[in-house]
Nucleic acid binder design. Structure first.
Lengths: 98, 98
DNA sequence: GGCAGACTTTCCGACATGGAAAGTCACGGG
DNA sequence: CCCGTGACTTTCCATGTCGGAAAGTCTGCC
């Protein structure tokens, strides 16, 4: 039985955003710099993609000042996880993965 | 063991092209009109996407005049199948599907 | 008050996309 | 023979998206 209703999500599909979500789906929370390096983009590009995911309500951004340094961490919202799972399900359907 | 080397392919990734490849991966060959309807795009749009897949050497286009009517059928080339499989593998890797 | 760190925004130029319309090409009809 | 039709293909356009670079914002430290 299918757990999520497959639904193609244009906000998630672009490579950088698919990667961000894929990472967050596994680690639950990750810092801005780590995500930027993992995705392999510049600060501005990551910032812009995160902003779109945030605007869609898929990612939650937490800014904290730790040890005098600004730390921004990212995490999927429950809705973001649902959307991601649904998108992945749709990808599998499209690509013949069941 | 991995059968294909995961490799993100920008030619395949865009939704319409991912769909076209996904369809061809299953049916081996499909007519232009059937693909257009399955993907849900206009003639011109399908034609343009197919052209890109063809330019990349991923899809083979065969035009035949059958019963006085032009019939264009599409099929994945061996290289197209490899590229599609590799892209799908990469998507699974990114999306945490192994 | 000035400086550094960590992001954000703004400013572009380069492409990618899709729909509509015009263009091809090969019949089949009149 | 010329025309209309079917099945695509190209061209024309108006948007949109992307990414890099540079400037801007904020906060805490010196």
């Amino acid at each position: 039985m299918t757990v999520v209703a497959p639904r193609f999500d244009a906000v998630i599909h672009p490579p950088p955003r698919l990667q961000i979500c894929g990472l967050l789906a596994v680690v639950d929370t990750m810092e801005f710099a780590a995500a930027r390096d993992a995705v392999g983009v510049s600060d501005s590009v990551l910032s812009k993609h995160v902003k779109q995911l945030e605007a869609a309500g898929y990612v939650k951004v937490q800014k904290a000042t730790i040890a005098s340094r600004q730390r921004t961490s990212l995490a999927l919202t429950p809705e973001g996880r649902r959307a991601f799972d649904a998108h992945v399900a749709e990808l599998r359907r499209i690509t013949g993965g069941g």
